[in-house]
Amino acid sequence: MALDQKTIEALEGVTTATLTTVLLKKGLRNVWLRGTKPLKPGQKRVVGLAFTLRFVPAREDLATPESWSSPTSTRAAIEAMPEGCIAVADAMGVTDAGIFGDILCARLKKRGVAALITDGVVRDVAGVLATDLPVWCQGAAAPPSVAGLTFVNWQQPIGCGGVAVFPDDVIVVDDDGAVVIPAALVADVVAASVEQEKLEAWLFNEVQNGASLPGLYPPNAENKARYEAYRAKSKAAE
């Protein structure tokens, strides 16, 4: 699966707050990945297909420095990532072992990976920031991943931040964190979200001009008609 440029551009103009509202209206409540905070303030909104990575609790015979050379390793997973994907790592919320450091993040950046998202933490923060790879996580820890986690596979269904994420689900992430859009719902969600953003921009402008909230947000029949008239006028001017 690949995201077309039109879909990417549409979602780049939609906040994760709007997406959670639209998905809620479609019956999906658990779509916001807990613990995914921007490592660097001011990171731009990123859109991409999920490339999933799965960790389990560390087991002494498996979680060793030697495991980094295994065919089933984070290193091998990185080399399998397509350009434009978003790496989504299930670190089980562990915050005392950094899953990726500066060298791995540098390689992610070189491969054209759009962002790294995890409910865990990273290490070598100064170096990670220097790569300019957008990262959302719970912070930093000095110990390596094998101090607390065992990497087991990639491109499998995972639970990240308490949310089910499947390979090729669509991820949108901004200052409010990461949201997953199930692949089968993308077209409907994009259309509804773009329209919701236009409505909310009009509502915000009305509030800025002194309008009170009752009957405006959410809009009653009168304000819906006013908004539709505004949209018709805007389309005619385009």
Rank of each mutant, 00 (worst) to 15 (best):
M1D: 14
M1T: 13
A2M: 15
K6F: 05
K6Y: 07
A10W: 03
G13D: 03
T15I: 10
T15P: 10
T21I: 01
T21P: 00
T21G: 09
L23E: 00
L23Q: 06
L24I: 00
K26L: 07
G27Q: 09
R29Q: 11
R29Y: 12
W32V: 09
L33H: 04
G35V: 08
K37Y: 08
P38N: 02
K40V: 15
K40R: 14
Q43Y: 06
K44M: 05
R45I: 07
A50G: 06
F51A: 12
R54A: 09
F55I: 01
L62Q: 15
A63N: 01
P65T: 13
E66R: 11
S67H: 11
W68A: 12
S69D: 14
S69N: 14
P71V: 11
P71H: 09
P71T: 11
T72I: 15
S73Q: 09
T74G: 03
R75K: 14
E79C: 02
E79T: 11
A80C: 14
G84F: 09
C85F: 08
V88A: 10
G93W: 05
G93D: 12
T95W: 00
T95S: 13
D96F: 14
A97S: 15
G101S: 10
D102S: 15
L108E: 02
L108Q: 08
K110P: 00
G112C: 03
V113I: 15
I117Y: 05
V121H: 06
V121P: 03
V121Q: 07
V122M: 09
R123S: 12
A126S: 09
A130Y: 02
A130T: 01
A130R: 05
T131K: 05
P134H: 04
V135C: 03
W136L: 08
A140Y: 03
P143M: 11
P144H: 13
S145N: 14
A147Q: 08
G148F: 08
L149M: 13
N153M: 08
N153R: 11
Q155R: 12
Q156Y: 10
C160R: 02
G161A: 12
V163R: 01
V165T: 05
P167Y: 09
I171F: 04
D176F: 08
G177V: 01
V179C: 07
V179Q: 02
P182N: 14
A183P: 02
A184M: 01
A184E: 14
L185K: 13
V186L: 06
A187G: 06
D188Y: 03
V194F: 04
K198L: 08
F204N: 12
N205A: 14
G210K: 13
G210F: 11
L213C: 03
P214W: 06
G215V: 10
G215F: 07
P219M: 03
P219T: 06
A221E: 12
A229Q: 15
R231T: 10
K233I: 02
K235P: 00
A237P: 07
